[in-house]
Design a protein around this nucleic acid. Structure first.
Lengths: 323, 323
DNA sequence: AATTGTATTTTTGTGCTAGAAAATACGTCA
DNA sequence: TGACGTATTTTCTAGCACAAAAATACAATT
């Protein structure tokens, strides 16, 4: 029986499953987010084909992901009928960020780099040794960091960390870049905020704005800040503009933990975000853009080490958006 | 003699040299460009260390690259002294774009995709078969295309071509994005054009502007156009802004071959470029920004299928930069 | 002291195989 | 007809050995 032989041999030399279905878990999360965006009621049908088309994968991983969601009680499977929204779909809401060796290493590298425990030039082998990770994992993480603009591959075998947002210079660059992008986003034709998302965002921001400066939840404030800017990115109806804004958001998320902004400024910031959202919701995009310009200019001024490197006064006005 | 044995065994099962020193050839080109930026006279010393630091590589590949430049007669080697600028350094000026399997495949894929001979979703194996390339080469090229924003990796084993600049929608997105970025570049503090480069650029543009519309050299015009925009990117003194502008340039370089713009508009375009450079050289950055806005807005209007998708008139003025 | 020349060590890339996962083909059911 | 269930084919990843290339150490020279 060749079959049995093959199977027993497989059992003997069994390896770790290549990625232990981590991709299917990730797909499950993305499908979940995608389902939540749509207005679905318990009992609604979720055809496999829609997911395969939305995520450019075949039915095999989609079925795996849907099965995962079924075991979590979010979907229900009926034989020969497929998957349906389960009763508890709206209730249990765990973002459940999938933990893989990649995400762990990714965070460890960023943490150590921002705290200067890691040199600006590293090799893949060095990282693999230091973090006890396989070479393949290291390369995947480096590839992702490269996409995010954190590292760059040199011609040899070194990877070079770019001056990150913890350097004052890059921070100013980033701010000025956003000062260019984000006000312009509102003026793009087809700019449209997602209604539900805006509602949630406003609720979160309103709560933060009412908080006391002394017991301010820094983490939540930064999350809300980033969610706000990403919402603008998604709304702007321009692929390149959105990509650029999202890239800045990602960089900021890594770096802001080490940045120090006075809580009073953060509370003010939440109020400004609210005002911007309200202007945009009312369709007054010119005003929203103007408010965004003022908001970013105020944040730029509030930076600890902010200096205006000798631009002539005439220019400074234009730069700060006070034209 | 173990040495001989090892050597003969190596000769028997010899493989292709991994990359056949293609990296050293590439490094040689980059070193050459770097040397030309500096004002060097024949006889000047080129210490290895400077190149290792500039390019984040060890001395080994630097020495290889310098040797290559020596065989091309651009450098001179003196024993125990190192490398020196040779007499013919300024003369022979071949850009000598290094031809590797990667560049060939890269161009072939882009060509076939833009002419719709390639589907929007492909697998690495499919590309390897179609172009008779090794899997490794395919993966490297895909990685680069991903960095350039041409493809994206799906969760499964497909790579998805993003709507490229040949689609009208993306073209408009790109144009509007540049309309946001490029005028702002002039207003960044520390904006400074490279004097020599500006001189060369103006010479090239001036020549093109004087040409007859009927015998217009399209290829050279596009090259000059891209060189112009890249020069602005390099001058703007903001890493993120420069990256975004360069990415757009690269995309445009791939796509513009299939774009149709009337020659008359291109000649006008060269004149506008010249005016912008002159304003910037004179230090009138506000005027340069304004001219750039008008230039891009004019190009946007000149696009064949340009439509302003229903933005209200008030907005349209702001969008077109006629505020 | 800094730079080059040379030798040695380390890291990387490639080709290979097997097994895991994805893509796909095809039959079945609503 | 379109969706699901199942089986088959294809593609990918991990791990290994080895040669190529890069990094590095150290001696020699200006």
């Amino acid at each position: 029986m060749p079959r049995t032989t093959a199977r027993s041999r497989a059992a003997k030399t069994r390896r770790q499953p290549t990625r232990g279905n981590a991709t299917q878990a990730a797909l499950a999360e993305r499908i979940l987010g995608w389902l939540r965006q749509q207005d679905l009621k318990p009992g609604d049908h979720v055809p496999e084909r829609l997911a395969t088309e939305a995520f450019h994968v075949s039915r095999t991983p989609v079925r795996g992901a849907l099965t995962l969601l079924t075991t979590r009680g979010l979907l229900e499977r009926r034989d020969q009928r497929g998957y349906f929204i389960a009763a508890g779909f709206d209730a249990a809401d765990q973002p459940a960020a999938v933990e893989t060796p990649e995400t762990t290493l990714h965070d460890a590298i960023l943490r150590d780099r921002f705290s200067k425990r890691l040199d600006a030039e590293v090799t893949a082998a060095h990282l693999a040794r230091r973090y006890h990770a396989s070479r393949a994992v290291v390369l995947r993480v480096l590839g992702r960091l490269q996409k995010d603009g954190v590292v760059e591959r040199a011609l040899g075998q070194r990877w070079v960390f770019l001056p990150a947002l913890d350097s004052l210079r890059s921070q100013e660059d980033s701010h000025r870049f956003r000062l260019i992008l984000e006000p312009a986003a509102f003026l793009q034709p087809g700019f449209a905020l997602d209604a539900r998302r805006t509602r949630d965002l406003k609720a979160a921001l309103g709560e933060l704005a009412r908080q006391d400066a002394r017991h301010f939840d820094l983490k939540r404030a930064l999350d809300a800040d980033i969610a706000f800017h990403e919402a603008i990115a998604d709304a702007c109806n321009n692929r390149f503009l959105a990509d650029a804004m999202r890239q800045q958001s990602r960089l900021r998320r890594f770096a802001t933990t080490s940045m120090q902004v006075p809580p009073a400024r953060l509370i003010e910031s939440c109020r400004e975000h609210l005002a911007i959202l309200e202007a945009a919701e009312a369709g007054d995009f010119v005003r929203a853009a103007e408010l965004m310009r003022e908001h970013l200019a105020a944040s730029l001024r509030a930076r600890p080490g902010f200096v205006n490197r000798g631009a002539p006064p005439m220019l400074r006005a234009a730069l700060m958006g006070a034209r």
